[in-house]
């Protein structure tokens, strides 16, 4: 044991750091529930901005929903948008500053319900922005109501007996939908429930920012995530449930790269 402690002293030294919190996250503790995927996505986006060295050229837009206060945690210039309007806000910024990096960060209610029009038209115009779309199938902030992406049969506080698709319609696969628009240049669906997936998300996020230099269209990244509070599960249970139920419906992977559809088996 003594030998082990000695070794720890040798290991835990500045020069041996292989991972630490990016300085592009503020010191403020995330307001999210324990185990919530928002924190991971926030961190990944900030790591990418840090690594690309584009903090001074980046403007982020936070939505209405749990991540309304994303600007408290992301150490960059940010605007808070009205519910669903983030892609329009991003358009206004990007059109005036075509060489800046602009991204929106939106939940499923914000992006695929109240903001469907703004989402689709920003994608259709091919705005040279990045959209990060966090899909956890529920309205987290208002207390777990049905989202446009709530699965058939899935319980929420407004579908207490499960989503009846005859009454509530089917969940929207908006990511597949926007991929059909010529304005989207990069469309992908990722998750953050395992380390491998987090690495993949980071690669995609990097591409979404690098694409902005090319000015060839919009990059759209869906992140299938959990809402363990809304789903009323432990964080680990929620990730398992997500893997077994969400991912078959919302399969992970690239849909469109460099403006071309990816062939899927």
């Amino acid at each position: 044991m003594e030998k082990e402690n000695l070794r720890l002293d040798e290991i835990i030294r500045e020069e041996n750091i292989v991972f630490k919190k990016t300085p592009l996250l503020t010191d403020k503790v995330f307001s999210y529930c324990p185990g919530c995927g928002h924190g991971v996505v926030h961190r990944v986006i900030m790591e990418v901005i840090d690594e690309l060295g584009i903090q001074s050229e980046t403007i982020g837009i936070s939505p209405v929903g749990c991540s309304v206060f994303a600007y408290d945690f992301m150490n960059i210039d940010m605007q808070q948008a009205a519910h669903g309007r983030a892609p329009a806000v991003a358009t206004g910024i990007k059109r005036c500053w075509p060489d800046k990096y602009v991204f929106t960060y939106q939940g499923d209610g914000d992006l695929a319900a109240i903001g469907t029009s703004e989402t689709i038209h920003a994608c259709n115009r091919g705005e040279h922005i990045a959209i990060f779309f966090i899909n956890n199938g529920i309205y987290g902030m208002t207390g777990g109501q049905m989202a446009p992406t709530t699965l058939p049969g899935m319980k929420s506080s407004t579908t207490p007996y499960g989503r009846d698709t005859r009454l509530m319609g089917n969940p929207i696969k908006i990511t597949e939908l926007v991929a059909t628009l010529p304005g989207t240049y990069f469309v992908t669906r990722q998750s953050v429930h395992t380390a491998v997936n987090v690495r993949k998300l980071k690669k995609a996020a990097k591409m979404a920012f690098e694409n902005q230099k090319l000015k060839k269209g919009l990059s759209f990244i869906e992140v299938v995530s959990n809402c363990n509070s809304g789903w009323k599960m432990s964080p680990i249970q929620a990730n398992r449930w997500m893997e077994e139920n969400m991912l078959p419906f919302y399969p992970i992977g690239d849909i469109k790269i460099n403006g071309n559809f990816v062939k899927r088996n």
């Binding site: 030294r13 750091i17 292989v18 919190k21 185990g35 380390a195």
Partner: peptide, 24 residues
Amino acid sequence: PENCTGCVNCALVCPDAVITVYRK
């Protein structure tokens, strides 16, 4: 601690960015 390889997996999935990883 004797099992740790510094693989970073824990830090990657940590939603609150609380883990610093060292490797030697």
